[in-house]
Design a protein around this nucleic acid. Structure first.
Lengths: 215, 215
DNA sequence: TTCGTCATGTAATGGGTTACATGATTAC
DNA sequence: GTAATCATGTAACCCATTACATGACGAA
């Protein structure tokens, strides 16, 4: 129910490895599979470990994502054959193997991952931004800075909107709603400061020594 | 893609004015119409004024909500007849009236509103909680406290999960992800403190003087 | 007369949630 | 031997998003 402006700068729209509007999970799934092949169950655990307790992915969300990625040629399913470590109790060897489907990323998937990660439009959405940030190590410092600054500008814009909003309507809203908006504003402000910190860190590792500090 | 536990205490499930899993907008729309009848366009503006710039409701979300509410008998559509204030320039009076559909809440809608507002399960979701808080003035202090405390418990639980999560995986996550989780934790902590403040205020206006402070 | 805002919707599409269904391993 | 966890999906339903379509009204 929340709208985010996606209209800003709809330039560079031709993507090589198309996938119109991927779901939320495509990026982190590819990002995790980039490190090593995994099966769905573990993917879910790693997602939680990486993103924290607010990101509990459901099966009905994860597996369809994997299916979509497989259809797009971004991942391939491997049968993790580790059959009958003990003795087979029944005589029928049929259906003995085939459990644990391992998903492995393909070169195509790697390309899609990079493309999704670099795209700057989606950072206005908090969750998309979070997901990108979780894989920032795969980006060049300049791209990281671009994403951070875009996110910052968005938050700043929202902050300004909060202020004009309160200026226009303050007398008409009750104390609970006011408290709500004040808390939201404070949270947004805190987000901005966090982003600023990230930008500062990025600059310090990027520039090295832009100012004359004894070369 | 985020899962919230709804399993906790599935007691008192029989709702009088059923509407299985209403969308997000049902509550605030009814809440605003409770104050006065409005048409869709204004509803959207009020929603934004009340909830802040992160809540920009789209038409494709608002009108279907109104349609659903109308079908459920919670609101009724009135034709806001304010035709031809000036002289009618064309001779055909046909199609002169009928613009601005005003929506008015029904007694049934009022009942649904109260029911949705009092329901405690949904407060685990941040957005649902926000929407309830925006209409807290319609609740009894004790119900307000119950909702606040439930929300607080949920956040506290998440905070604990953050900690065990970091304890178990800290060495495996990179600096960006760590920064992400730390910021999330801080935000959650800040949310808890905010809730605590609300609880304190609630108690002070509720109790009056529980401690001997010169009666 | 043209632009911006007011104003009301519909249609397609797609992803997420919930619930369902099933079975193998491991730990106690 | 039984409970918990591991493990893999499917199916239905529904809401939100996005884009589309249309038109009146007021001001410049």
């Amino acid at each position: 129910m929340v709208i985010y402006r996606t209209d800003i700068s709809s330039q560079h729209d031709r993507r090589l490895h198309h996938m119109k509007q991927p779901g939320m999970l495509e990026l982190p799934v590819l990002g995790l599979l980039k490190e090593r092949a995994m099966h769905g169950y573990e993917l879910r655990k790693q997602l939680g470990a990486m993103l924290g307790p607010f990101w509990q992915v459901s099966w009905g969300s994860l597996y369809p994502t994997l299916r979509r990625l497989a259809k797009a040629g971004a991942v391939e399913k491997l049968a993790d054959e580790k059959p009958a470590r003990r003795s087979a109790k029944s005589s029928t060897t049929i259906s003995a193997g085939r459990r644990k489907t391992v998903y492995r990323i393909t070169p195509r998937g790697e390309a899609m991952f990079t493309e999704m990660l670099e795209e700057t439009a989606a950072v206005v959405d908090a969750e998309h931004f979070t997901l990108k940030l979780a894989f920032f190590r795969y980006l060049k410092p300049e791209t990281r800075l671009a994403l951070l600054e875009r996110r910052r500008a968005y938050l700043q814009e929202k902050l300004a909107q909060f202020k004009t909003n309160l200026r226009d309507y303050r007398e008409r809203i009750d104390s609970y709603t006011l408290s709500l908006q004040n808390h939201s504003m404070a949270a947004t402000q805190s987000d901005i400061e966090w982003i600023d910190q990230l930008i500062r860190e990025e600059r310090s590792i990027e520039g090295g020594a832009p100012n004359p500090t004894n070369a």
